[in-house]
């Protein structure tokens, strides 16, 4: 139930607080974005029709590299 799916914000309607979010698998949905500060082109986590957080793209891209670094450091210790 706490499942949340990442998608890309395609358009935002500031009046209604809703955005069109593209999930990258050919599906897109109208999502309430009133709980986040998000811009078109950014990624959000969507849960039960609401965007609950903006995904940090840089962190996402660096995750594996960071893991590798942590493991290496521990391995050498």
């Amino acid at each position: 139930m706490c499942l949340a799916i990442p998608g890309k914000v395609v358009t935002i309607d500031a009046k209604t607080g809703h955005a069109q979010v593209d999930y990258g698998d050919g599906t897109s949905r109208t999502v309430n974005v009133s709980l986040v500060d998000v811009k078109v082109g950014e990624y959000v986590l969507v849960h039960a029709g609401f965007a609950i957080q903006v995904v940090d793209r840089k962190e996402a891209e660096e995750t594996i590299a960071l893991f590798k670094e942590m493991l290496e450091m521990a391995g050498e210790a």
């Binding site: 139930m1 706490c2 309430n32 709980l35 849960h47 029709g49 609401f50």
Partner: peptide
């Protein structure tokens, strides 16, 4: 989504519409 329930209530003003709201802090903000 809870917004579906709000729409339902708007479409049927003569009905009482109750949302059984479950979920942790992920869901409660909505």
């Amino acid at each position: 989504s809870i917004e579906d329930v709000v729409n339902l209530a708007k479409q049927h003003p003569q009905k009482q519409v109750v949302f059984l709201a479950v979920g942790f802090e992920t869901t409660a903000p909505s």
